Amino acid sequence: MEKVDAVVVGAGVIGLAIAARLSKNLANVVIIDKHKSFGEETSSRNSEVIHAGIYYPQDSLKAKLCVEGKQALYRYCDLRGVPYKPIGKLIVATTHDQQSSFEAVITRAEANGVTDLIRQSSRQLHTFSSELKATAGLLSPSTGIIDSHSYMQSLLAEIEANGGSFVPKTGFVAAEPDDKGFVIHLDIEGEPLKIRTRYLINSAGLYSTQVASSIQGVENSLIPQLHWCKGHYFSYSGKSPFSKLVYPVPEIALKGLGIHGTLDMSGQLKFGPDTQYISDNTEPDHHVSPALKPKFVEAIRRYFPNIDPDKLQPSYSGIRPKLQGPNANFEDFKIESCASHSIKGLINLYGIESPGLTASLAIADYVAASLEGKS
């Protein structure tokens, strides 16, 4: 039976970051994914935003790892030549009543260590875009955008340079812990394979609970319920009227950040995502219905009243693995180690949605420390 040091299940941005981090100290790290390439699910279907860490409750993992991860990600991009732009974000109020929520946003941001928010009057906002309609706003200069595909490519290159490997088209079947680690059962395009590993990292995103339930010794009571939440995006043709990202005041309980305007690395303006909970017992459907356009136009018009609906076209969608249900309050990341499930060498990650991309390097450090019993 082949022996490796670590198996990471799921080659999204989180799994790749974890594998890259572990490969610095372990000689043989294997990352597997059922798809033919890396990042084919949530990691390639998001806003590609480097978040500042503004909204999340103080002392939550989302707050802590987002702020740490943002700084680490900017350093990584500089070091590895990954394309990014720190273009900044405007959080805008479209009514005077919404302005009262700015105080809570600023207080929470400062508690999280984000101290660079700058208040903006309606006149100041107008200098960023004559098309922007808002009574007031906040500027987050440390928010940026990233080429997420290039970032994942860089992580994979790092893994392989350190002697690790990526095995695509490989399904996780089961794992049995013993005193030497784990015996892992895999399905490689219909062919069964068993390998032995010292460490097992479940970073399977949408399928993390299914993987956990296939690991012997993980009690059902420790596996949380996961909710699939679909977010649609529409692209806007022509030159963007905005030079910065534009976000409405956040939704109550952080169910989402509202239908916001973002730019990609080529300057393409897109709007989204909305929030639509879906069934998690089928294959993901990434279709974007044109029938959603009126809802998008209505939301966007609040801060971009001159939007031309004819320029708004269905683009893509992504599905987030949320621990927070449709009518529930905030739920944090869950990164469970031996301290939770009593299985040495196993880490289960659940509900790693936004700001997972931003927090990816900090999550990887957290996982490495957890394996060493330091967190």
Rank of each mutant, 00 (worst) to 15 (best):
M1I: 04
D5F: 13
V8G: 12
G12L: 11
I18G: 02
A20H: 12
A20T: 02
S23K: 12
L26H: 15
A27G: 04
I32E: 03
I32D: 07
I32T: 02
H35A: 05
K36Q: 12
S37T: 14
F38C: 00
G39P: 03
T42N: 14
T42I: 06
S47C: 07
H51D: 11
H51W: 11
A52I: 01
A52K: 00
Y55L: 03
Y56I: 01
L61C: 07
K62Y: 09
K64Y: 03
G69H: 09
G69Y: 09
R75M: 03
C77K: 06
L79M: 08
G81Y: 14
P83R: 14
Y84G: 01
K85M: 01
I91T: 14
T94L: 05
V105M: 09
A109L: 07
D116C: 03
H126E: 11
T127R: 10
T135M: 00
S142R: 15
T143K: 12
L155M: 14
L156R: 15
L156I: 08
G163W: 12
S165L: 04
S165D: 05
G181M: 05
H185C: 05
L186V: 07
D187N: 15
P192I: 02
Y199P: 00
N202A: 10
S203I: 01
S208H: 04
A212M: 11
Q216G: 00
N220Q: 10
Q225H: 14
W228Y: 08
W228S: 06
Y233G: 09
F234N: 07
Y236G: 02
P241H: 10
F242W: 04
F242C: 05
S243D: 11
L245N: 09
Y247L: 04
P250N: 10
A253L: 13
L254K: 13
L257H: 11
G258R: 09
I259G: 02
H260C: 00
H260Y: 01
L263Y: 12
M265T: 04
M265L: 13
Q268E: 10
Q268Y: 02
T275C: 15
Q276E: 15
D280P: 06
N281G: 00
T282M: 03
D285L: 05
V288W: 13
A291E: 14
P294A: 04
F296M: 03
V297K: 01
A299F: 02
D310G: 12
Q313W: 00
Q313R: 11
S317A: 15
G318E: 11
N327H: 14
A328M: 10
F330T: 07
K334C: 05
S337T: 10
A339W: 07
S340C: 03
H341I: 03
H341W: 10
S342T: 11
L346D: 09
L346P: 09
I347C: 05
N348K: 11
Y350G: 08
Y350H: 11
I352T: 09
G356H: 13
L357W: 11
S360M: 05
I363E: 12
D365F: 13
V367F: 08
V367Y: 09
L371A: 07
E372Y: 05
K374Y: 02
K374I: 04
